[in-house]
Nucleic acid binder design. Structure first.
Length: 147
DNA sequence: GCCAACGTTGGC
DNA sequence: GCCAACGTTGGC
């Protein structure tokens, strides 16, 4: 899962109450579907910093609460307010994520791109802009072996 | 700041 | 349903 560290970083997550935060603001249907349908309690998730000096994987989170309606979609004061999301039929969802640990170092996008073992990885495919995406077990294990 | 690659909107 | 215009993401 991606976040711009200037908006919400791995350190912000670590500093959150119970080291847990709601992953709000996802406004893309493909990403929404994964949040709503695929992400399960206990799943482990890489935290990816995007749009920053060194984009890359910085840590690991755990899903502690499965999908529920994104309250920021209902609040006109929120950046991600969506008047078309009806509380009776919510359009956008969140999960709660808990900080597990930071990686010993940032595994940068350029380093990941250079790994043949990751050539099929969703994150590295051309034109990919999804903020939430699946990862294969083998990719997960390989990435951790780089640390 | 630039720009490629999407995704969304809305007229027709 | 098509598609042009526009908006967003995110690396560089």
């Amino acid at each position: 899962m991606k976040s711009e560290p200037s908006e919400f970083s791995i350190d912000d997550l670590k500093a959150s109450p119970k080291q847990t935060n709601m992953w709000d603001g996802v406004r893309n249907y493909q990403a929404r579907n994964m949040i709503r349908d695929s992400i399960k309690k206990g799943d482990l998730v890489f935290f990816y910093h995007s749009a920053c000096a060194e984009p890359g994987i910085v840590g690991i989170m755990e899903v502690v609460k499965e999908a529920y309606p994104d309250p920021t979609a209902f609040d006109p004061d929120e950046n991600h307010f969506d008047p078309k999301s009806d509380p009776e039929d919510p359009r956008w969802f969140v999960v709660d994520l808990k900080f597990k640990r930071k990686l010993k170092r940032t595994l940068s996008l350029s380093e990941l791109k250079a790994c043949n073992q990751l050539s099929e990885m969703r994150l590295l495919q051309r034109g990919n802009r999804l903020s939430v995406m699946p990862i294969e077990d083998a990719e997960w294990d390989f990435i951790l072996s780089l640390e």
